[in-house]
């Protein structure tokens, strides 16, 4: 078994985490083509990432402790909403103020609002399944187009289901993927993109077009990994 180059270990780690600039990353990938040891370590690191994604528990705070820590004010009913939602709504409010009034701003705001609405309990998916062969046919007859549903679990993004949503004046398909506890909403519509890649208050937006569809992914996942998701999704076409 060939060993990886000692001086490449840190670079391989940084590259895996999306922390290398494009030039150094390209250099490293070029090196891996001629170096089985480094290429094998890269594969091992990717497989370890998948193992961690599936085998390591994300411990959510016990309900009783959350209740105990919530502010005890008159607005108690509001606090009973999941904290994620309360904070999210606040973050959305700030995002609305911060986004520039460019032509795309309305739809970006609309997307963000739609995403945050969906994060409320019970609103995320209309069809819940990890299998694209269940999710894809669910959209049949509900839309005037057939959204592509792709399996990117090998890259650590697990399909969670899909739903219908209404943004930009039309009904669209939303595919829901999970990376750990992070929800990725992928909006799919059959025409020109209505949102640009953007970042607002911790929510990242990545948009692209492919095969006549416009895709917009929105998540609180960091921008590097959201871009990895976009790349992985496009590569599966």
């Amino acid at each position: 078994m060939t060993e990886p180059c000692a001086d490449k270990r840190l670079l391989l780690t940084a590259d895996l985490d999306g922390e290398l600039d494009a030039g150094r990353s390209a250099e490293l990938h070029n090196h891996m083509r001629g170096c089985p040891g480094c290429a094998a370590l890269r594969d091992d690191l990717l497989s370890l990432r998948r193992t961690l994604a599936t085998d390591i528990a994300y411990h959510r705070v016990p309900h009783a402790l959350r209740q105990k820590l919530a502010p005890s004010t008159k607005r108690e009913t509001a606090w009973r909403l999941p904290a994620g939602f309360a904070g999210g709504a606040l973050a959305a409010g700030m995002a609305l103020l911060l986004l520039p009034h460019s032509p795309d701003a309305v739809s970006t705001n609309e997307l963000l609002a739609s995403h945050l609405r969906a994060l409320q309990p019970g609103h995320l998916t209309d069809v819940a399944s990890n299998d694209q062969h269940n999710v894809k046919p669910w959209f049949d007859g509900k839309l005037d187009f057939a959204p592509p549903v792709r399996d990117v679990s090998a890259q650590g993004f697990v399909l969670d289901g899909g739903r219908l949503d209404y943004v930009g004046g039309r009904t669209v398909a939303v595919l829901v993927y999970l990376r750990q506890k992070h929800v990725i909403d992928l909006y799919v519509r059959p025409d020109a993109p209505t949102a640009v890649s953007n970042t607002a208050n911790g929510y990242n937006i990545v948009s692209w077009t492919q095969n006549g569809f416009a895709f917009t992914a929105i998540s609180d996942l960091n921008i590097n990994e959201l871009q990895q998701f976009a790349d992985a999704f496009q590569a599966q076409s």
Binding site: Y58, H59, R60, V61, P62, L65, R66, L69, A70, P71, T73, R75, A83, G84, A86, G87, G88, L90, A91, K181
Partner: peptide, 20 residues
Amino acid sequence: MEERDRRAVLLLRHLDAAYN
């Protein structure tokens, strides 16, 4: 909203991350 409550809301959003 009181400043302290506002801060609490911001922090509570990250309570799962804190506990994990």
